[in-house]
């Protein structure tokens, strides 16, 4: 197995304060990794560093074979931008599903999904895409993707007329059409009802089913850990607290990671709830 992500001595400082400090982290190709931790722990920041959205100025960061770290000749604290071609290739291979969804409001759901396929077009098709004229097989693929996510009757609807959950599914479909080797998803089910959550999880896991696909997800709904991940990384205050196979993640560890569950009205002592997320989501 090759390595999808390798970090060594990676630190991110904002306004002089270290918000993320990862001495060593290796994610192999084909792994499904979930990142958990309380709000503000640095989960999204870690995802952004991997997705090259936040420059890594300290230590070494390798993603899909590209080096994102500081410029070796200039030393720590600098940032070396990738060459434009390499940057595009890395972006094409990295599927981002970030919070905020960021659809193009005035394009239809189908057109938004097709944006995911832009980097796959070459030659005359790439030129035609300027006029939003796509090969029919791609359009069929986009429609099939939307249908699989239960949006068959919304393909022609403008993105700003979709509900929050529908937008989340469109953003997911756009990312899937990109056929990325590395999927980075930040709370992909945050706006979804239970049925939609199941559909989205199935789609994510399905997209990462190939042995050469890697899935890294920031998860708040701890019930989803077994479905979405084979390995869980707990982050607290910018540091990796633990890094375990999903089967060995116990409620006690999660409880320690998120701090004590909130005290309920009927007494100070609270048993670990049956549903792991009942108390820890706060």
């Amino acid at each position: 197995m090759s390595t999808a992500i390798r970090m060594e001595g990676m630190r991110v400082a904002l306004a002089g304060r270290v918000v993320l400090d990862v001495p060593r982290l290796v994610i192999e190709t084909g792994e499904r990794v979930a990142i958990v931790g309380p709000n503000g722990a640095g989960k999204s920041m870690l995802l952004k560093v991997i997705g090259a959205g936040v420059p890594a100025r300290h230590g070494q960061v390798h993603v899909l074979g590209y080096s994102l770290g500081p410029d070796p000749s200039e030393g720590e604290g600098t940032h070396r931008a990738l060459a434009p071609d390499a940057r595009r290739a890395l972006r094409r291979d990295t599927g981002l599903l970030m919070q905020g969804l960021h659809l193009v409001q005035r394009l239809s759901a189908r057109e938004n999904v097709l944006i995911g396929a832009l980097a796959r077009l070459h030659g005359v098709h790439a030129l035609r895409s300027w006029a939003r004229w796509y090969p029919t097989d791609l359009v069929a693929e986009a429609d099939a993707m939307l249908t699989a996510l239960g949006l068959a009757d919304r393909v022609g609807t403008r993105a700003d007329r979709l509900s929050g959950g529908e937008r989340q599914k469109v953003a997911l479909a756009r990312m899937l059409l990109q056929r990325p080797r590395l999927i980075l998803a930040d709370e992909p089910t945050s706006a979804l009802d239970p049925t939609a959550t199941r559909e989205v999880c199935a789609a994510l896991v399905g997209a990462a089913a190939d042995r050469d696909r890697t899935l890294v997800t920031v998860v708040h709904d701890l019930d989803l850990l077994p479905a979405l991940s084979t390995r869980v990384i707990g982050i607290r205050a910018g540091c990796i607290a633990w890094d375990l196979p999903t089967g060995r993640v116990t409620p006690q560890r999660l409880q320690a990671l998120y701090g004590q569950p909130p005290v309920q009205a009927d007494g100070p002592e609270v048993d670990p709830p049956a549903a792991p997320n009942a108390g820890w989501q706060a």
Binding site: G51, D93, V104, I115, G116, L118, A119, A126, W130, R174
Partner: peptide, 13 residues
Amino acid sequence: ATGASEAQVFFHG
């Protein structure tokens, strides 16, 4: 972030 070219970013975004 999908890897689209600058021209594609202009015409689609």
